[in-house]
Amino acid sequence: MVKKIREIARKLLEEGKVDVVLGYEKGTEPLSERPFVARTVEEVERLTYSPFAIQNLATYLPRFNNNKVAILARGCTTRAINVLISEGQIERDKIYVIGIPCNGVIKTRELRESIGEEIEDVSIQNGEIVIKTTTEEKKVKFEDWLNISCKYCEYPNPLFYDVLVGEEVKPRGGGYPDVEDYEKLDEDKRWEIFEAEMSKCVRCYACRQSCPMCYCEHCFVDSTEPRWVEPGFDKTDLESWHLIRVLHMAGRCVDCGTCELVCPEGVKLLFLTRKVARDLKRDFDYVSGLNPEKPPFFGEFRYDDKGDFIL
């Protein structure tokens, strides 16, 4: 797979079809497959791919609007590209999509921190992640450390591509059992979990910055006129920040999970974003990022909307 990716990337750069290839390379941290922008044929040799590649690369597209770009794209990446196109942020013609069928990505930070020892080597064998530490070899189940969105992913294959690397995979599907589990809890418990998660936030904005949909030049959280969220760490402000962000994601979030995966404090965010995605699907039969021609969810008015709350 990696060989094929490099081959394609090299050809694209050599023939001048693209200026840059957005891909991944092996990072310096254990379990890290980090974003990498290959600009030359030599740099192509650094491109790799694995289930540790957590960052949705569509996040980088708007900043390459003056270039022709090739991008490694999973299902969720192509959905993000669709939303960005429908919102007028990028143009399809300038993007060459190297499609990658995806078996899901791993909660790399959480796994790394759970090991609690120096990790020397990591490999994936027969559905297991084999982690060699300084003292022992640990094996954990791939499925146990899957990003929650990937665990129930309906769209693991790129929705469109210019070239596909590898065989399409079977969607796992399965809906939103995690959201339903959360909803089953009583109100106090739900609130307790919500507050506990939000209280960990240090306002580094890694969630926002890693999100393909958070491209606003001026984020509401930074606005002083009006001031929606105050500075500091009052819980009301931390909670408002995340709630409002999640609501801004309604009908836009492509459920890639990057926001939660990159959080340095491990704040759980997907139970909120996935709840909104589930409600949209259930109540409006809407799934974000499936069609670049369609107006954004909140950009469309329909007489048959179920939204009686508005009247």
């Binding site: 974003p35 922008v37 996040t59 980088y60 240090v202 580094c204 904005y205 910055q209």
Partner: peptide, 13 residues
Amino acid sequence: SSSCLGCGACTYY
């Protein structure tokens, strides 16, 4: 800076 997301994690920690 090409892969930097522009968050504040590096500076905060």
